[in-house]
Amino acid sequence: MSQVGRRIEKTSIFDHYKNNKMFFVWDIAAIILIVAAIVASIFMLSGKTSGEYVEIYHKGNLLEVHPLHENKTIEIEIEGHNTITIKDAKVYVSHADCPDKLCVKSRPIKNGGERIICAPNGLVVIIRSDNDIDGITGGRQ
């Protein structure tokens, strides 16, 4: 055992860090990174809200999130105009300026995973819920 080794055994842990600043800096950096990664993972895994909510996308980008159980009317104006209504835990497109109006004719949605699409205006409205199934096959898509 070297002299250095014996000296460390006799000193306190704080003295050790004082004598070895580089190691101390890396420790702190590692701890910060771990905490950041854990917080980020929890944030990513937990999603944005609990319960049932309505997500509105434009061409893959999430525009807005609203609770399913709060009656409200949402106006979206990007490529065109769509009015999305959330009423009594159901969602429907009450008005749109798209040519085919398929979104307005779509049945109201209420279950997790159900969607309404307005392809001409690039919009997708989807309900997310804690008990989400993984996907829905069939429907006016």
């Binding site: 590692a30 771990i34 990664a37 993972s41 996308y57 980008n61 392809a119 997708v124």
Partner: peptide, 28 residues
């Protein structure tokens, strides 16, 4: 070990990706 752990956590959190709700063929 700490360095590996940090690297792993970062790699794992960067491994999941979603297209969001996108459009194709007049559908999603």
């Amino acid at each position: 070990f700490l360095v590996i752990l940090v690297a792993l956590i970062f790699i794992m959190s960067g491994c999941t990706a979603s297209s969001g709700e996108n459009l194709i063929f007049g559908s999603f």
